[in-house]
């Protein structure tokens, strides 16, 4: 370890292909894929596991050529978008309302933290009972997963403002509204975005869990169908689509975050 560190440091970085972090990662990924392919071919049960090449072959005909599967992906994306949008909007509004006053923080913060720690899967049957087996229950379950990290991080962001800035704003004559607009809100952006990113992951989890539990459409439904018919390659292909989706959405949130926190460098 120490030796390779030294080698990387000693070689001028841009001339050393192996020293480039992106290339190292890519090589690692390729290595894992090759191992996976080898395992799938010589030892794997064809009813349980598919190799990368099989997944790639299934991607076209069994996923994107099947209008039902495409519709399912679209539906899941739609549910995710609605659930996430609601989480963000309500999470920030509720977080600000609670974080605004000491009283609010003292009274409601423990309740939020308590609700946040409840393993929500136990509520899933109830949610399905209330919202039915359609998209509504998926949105509700995604929302109930996504909103808590947003609330918690919003409260944290409001609380962690540097007193020097508040003092300075007051000295310059800032009104309460101006203090919130120019000090408290910008200050909480980084914390809130950390919550947004976590919420994206958790909302997706909530939506998929609800789809797996009971549904007649959506990605969750098809993963179940493929798994139960011992057809691993489209199952894995669908999982790949899901992963790409999750990563892309996370990156999207990160991009928006970078836009709003340029000042942090």
């Amino acid at each position: 370890m120490a030796v390779s560190d030294f080698a990387v440091a000693a070689a001028p970085r841009r001339f050393s292909l192996l020293g480039n972090l992106a290339i190292q990662r890519l090589l690692l990924l390729l290595g894992l894929l090759v191992l996976w392919e080898i395992y799938a071919r010589i030892a794997g049960d064809t009813g349980m596991i598919a190799g990368p090449s099989g997944i790639l072959r299934a991607m076209g005909p069994k996923i994107f050529a099947n209008p039902k599967v495409v519709a399912a992906i679209e539906l899941t994306l739609f549910e995710l978008a609605v659930a996430y949008g609601l989480s963000v909007v309500f999470g920030v509004v509720i977080g600000v309302a609670i974080g605004m006053t000491d009283f609010g923080r003292r009274c409601f913060n423990p309740i939020v933290v308590l609700l946040y720690s409840v393993p929500q899967v136990v509520l899933l049957p109830l949610i399905v009972l209330v919202f039915g087996i359609g998209p509504l229950s998926k949105i509700a379950f995604g929302f109930s997963h996504g909103i808590f990290p947003v609330i918690v991080s919003t409260i944290t962001g409001m609380r962690t403002v540097n007193p020097t800035f508040l003092h300075g704003a007051r000295a310059m004559g800032a009104s309460r509204f101006q203090t919130i607009r120019h000090v408290i809100f910008p200050n909480m952006v980084p914390a809130v975005f950390a919550g947004f990113r976590l919420a994206m992951t958790l909302t997706l989890l909530g939506v998929l869990l609800a789809e797996l539990y009971v549904s007649i459409s959506g990605i969750g439904y098809f993963t179940q169908v493929f798994a139960e018919t011992f057809d691993p390659s489209p199952l894995f292909a669908l999982m790949t689509v899901l992963t790409v989706m999750a990563v892309a959405l996370n990156e999207l949130v990160r991009l928006v975050e970078a836009r709003f926190t340029r000042w942090k460098n």
Binding site: A171, M172, P186, W263, K264
Partner: peptide
């Protein structure tokens, strides 16, 4: 604020 301005030890420039 129309009469008095402060300059503190720590910069009160908002980083954002």
């Amino acid at each position: 604020p129309s009469q008095v301005a402060f300059v503190f030890q720590e910069s009160t420039l908002f980083p954002w």
